[in-house]
Amino acid sequence: MGKYFRELSVAAALVLLLVVLAGIAPAFFELQPLLSRLTAQTPALIVAVGMTLVIICRQIDISVGSQFGVCAVVAGLLAAAGLPLSVVLLASMAAGAAMGALNGWLVAGLGLPSIVVTLATMVTWQEALRLFQQGKFINLPAGVQWFGLAQQRGQLTLIATAVVLLTCAAWAMKNLAAGRHVYAVGTDAEAARLAGINPRGITLGVFILLGALAGLAATLNIVQSPQVDPKAGGGLELKAIAAAVVGGVAVNGGRGNLWGVFVGLLLLATINPALTYLHVEAYWEKAIQGLVILLAVVADGIRSRKGGAK
């Protein structure tokens, strides 16, 4: 219990919420809306995985929502031009990786603080995209939606992709040298360097990875409907950071578990539909979301203080 207290307590909160829903509004568990909800969260999950690595590395990236928007428009324009989806995916991931590399270079190469760098790049990409696209939707050709599969198969494919990616990342963080190096750099970059790890390389790496994952997420997003909204991605950075935090990732680096983030995202993503099913007015949503984030960190704080006092 001890080691995974946070992950388990968030999971318990999620289960409690689901039990309440099962009792009061069993319609919540109807297959079609449930699948739609899960599918809609796959891009957020993939971005949250990348964000977690960045936070474990003791950095942060608030430009990821803007990156996602740019990637979605790149992917949308290429798909609308009739290019095969594999090319679209690669181009979108390359665009994301390039934007991630810029962040990574400014942070790792020049030693600038990541919160400020990504604050600046967030504004830059967002305004550039607005000037370029003027908010115009991109209509996609038939055959892009669900990769040309039937709806339910498409949704299952997306969910499976995200879960496989999460599993691989969680495994790699634990068992691969590169994964452990991310923890080492986040815990103490200088000690990591003395131990023969290249902290700059690792930092650059996690930013590029997050960018590429934002590109992947954007592609998985555009196949969910026949149109691309260039405003997609607004607020995604806060969603990913909140999921990581609620899931027990320490913002000062070195600690965190991707499965915790998974549960954290599920909990946050359940609150909004739960309000609809429980017939609670929408204007309570933000307050409740804030309360959940605070409760999660306060519970953790109280527990760690008790632990420290022992």
Partner: peptide, 18 residues
């Protein structure tokens, strides 16, 4: 509670607006 300011104020960012 020795909580990180970024997280606490991210929570109250939502809470106050909410």
């Amino acid at each position: 509670l020795r909580l990180p300011p970024l997280i606490v104020t991210l929570g109250t960012f939502s809470l106050f607006r909410g």
